[in-house]
Design a protein around this nucleic acid. Sequence first.
DNA 1: TTACTTTACGGAGGTAGCCTCCGGTTTGTC
DNA 2: GACAAACCGGAGGCTACCTCCGTAAAGTAA
Lengths: 187, 187
Amino acid sequence: MTDVKPMRADARRNYERLLAEAKRAFTERGVDASLEDVARSAGVGIGTLYRHFPTREVLLETLLRDRFDTQAGKARELLAAEDPLDGLYTWLVGFGTASGAYRGLTELLADAINDPGSALHASCHAMQEAASQLVDRAKEAGALRADVTTRELLLLLHGASWAGTHLPGERGMERLLTLVFEGLRAS
Amino acid sequence: MTDVKPMRADARRNYERLLAEAKRAFTERGVDASLEDVARSAGVGIGTLYRHFPTREVLLETLLRDRFDTQAGKARELLAAEDPLDGLYTWLVGFGTASGAYRGLTELLADAINDPGSALHASCHAMQEAASQLVDRAKEAGALRADVTTRELLLLLHGASWAGTHLPGERGMERLLTLVFEGLRAS
DNA sequence: TTACTTTACGGAGGTAGCCTCCGGTTTGTC
DNA sequence: GACAAACCGGAGGCTACCTCCGTAAAGTAA
């Protein structure tokens, strides 16, 4: 199916250097980090960066794909957790952490869900699917309010994650998510 | 105390034109709208804009002050509401709406709370004070979880407001806030 | 090795936005 | 009408985005 031609040696080298530097830059400066800086510190021309990664989204998506795949796998595991609500909660914390990896990322992800053209859209959609099953299971067990949709829940998660990054201390997101979550129990 | 000299006629005219155009631009394009565009459409040089409003924050703060003052007044009124929880809720919805006036504003406000150097800091602080009294009243009435701080509540509000703006439809913020809020009742 | 093709590189260059600085103009006043 | 104070405007230096294409390096076959 997808028989990808192996990259030329120099191309592969540059590709990997760019990814490494991009990761550093996004971590330190947030998702708006200068791409020219990334290229510079990778010892590569700006044109090379844009050839490998036509848009900032593509670059981000490449960096995040592994993380997202892991997260999707976790959802499958947690479907077997004894307590459906705990399982869902655990997963949400994991996803919240992932979506807060770089400053400003939460925003991009929230937008990507609504924009099929975004390079991040597929990943987001996959996450939503994964969450959906956990949500349904929690509802069926009567542990979660029945009138909350997965979309709303994920938005609340994003909101908490976003708010957490605007809190000086760390672990803010988890506290906020707990507050929200305890309130969503079925009563 | 503050004896402000009256502005020269041309200065006052430009000042007001700039405010009007800035409001339009922020509404249409969000808080990152180009200031050069604002100056252009106000028929004024970019230097004039920067003289009147040294930073984007100052410009925003000027535009928002009225709204914020109104909101603070509402808090005082709502301290007399019959149901403390309803009063708090009503106020939060109002504040959430105000902080969603321009795309991207929620983010600026959330940061301004932690940055005393920001031109928006004073307004934010005033809001926090106003909220604090409503929160205390609701707690004393035993209607609100006692372990939630005003800061956390405002962050959750900001989170809901933020998430609401990333929802295609309107009125998203209110729905999200309701979900959060119902969960914070004292049980 | 060499000669040749394919793939990839890199940075100049055009666009746009930020912000500062200062020569020149307008306003208010006496 | 003349003068000082207040104010205007945009050129200019900076950074970042993204595209385009002449040049260089890697792979391949003889």
